[in-house]
Amino acid sequence: MAEIIVITSGKGGVGKTTTSASVACGLARRGNRVAVIDFDIGLRNLDLIMGCERRVVYDFVNVIQGDCTLKQALIKDKRLETLYVLAASQTRDKDALTCDGVRRVLDELTADGFDYIVCDSPAGIEKGAHLAMYFADRAIVVVNPEVSSVRDSDRVLGLLASKTHKAEQGNGGVKEHVLLTRYSPRRVTAGEMMSVDDVKEILGLEVVGVIPESQDVLTASNAGVPIILNVDSAVSAAYEDAVARLLGETVPLRFITERKGFFARMFGG
């Protein structure tokens, strides 16, 4: 039985697609069969982050409308044997995505023996975002330690608890995880940024990972290589930890304190 994981946030630009790509890679690298689907109809971007933009022939909407088979539309990753990408359509028709169509694609992926289906949600709380979360078993809510992102996340957590298939059935609902991205320990220490504990307290949830702010993320997206594959980067290690926690492993949080020099230590903290 495939587990469906939605990567969502409400607010745009917080790192949903970066997270979708890295979580999908992290799960696939552990031998799981993973499909990652771009739900951002009209604004396809997961293909660029995954580095497969020139191999997109058919997309999600083509499959739903029966223009091709699911097999034809799935793009096999060139680095990881068990990873597949389903690109978003570039159509401007917002109604191209239907609840029944999404259900059929997810069912077919499950029947095909996929272990995980990662749904990269568009920003906002409109139809695309709703359908991305609707069939989810779990949700990773991506949050920046910043007021608008935290507020929007709380709104999305509310929707996950009420407007999803699991919530409607009343059997426990969607399992929710919070992932903090663009975290700067230096700014937290300086009192310029909310801390992990601040965000946990406001949202009332544990965090599944803390991804440090880093220039490596832009470099990775420039190259079309999911950041988790850049093993020299702290961001990669932080995503790897998050994937381990998703799978139930206990891993202490890293990269949440500033590396301090001699003088900083002397003056406490």
Binding site: E146, V147, V150, R151, D154, R155, G158, V188, A190, G191, E192, M193, M194, S195, D198, E201, I202, L203
Partner: peptide, 18 residues
Amino acid sequence: SSASVAKERLRIIVAQER
């Protein structure tokens, strides 16, 4: 600190919206 101002503002608005 600006972080504690942010936290306090969020605490209030999030409670109200919930």
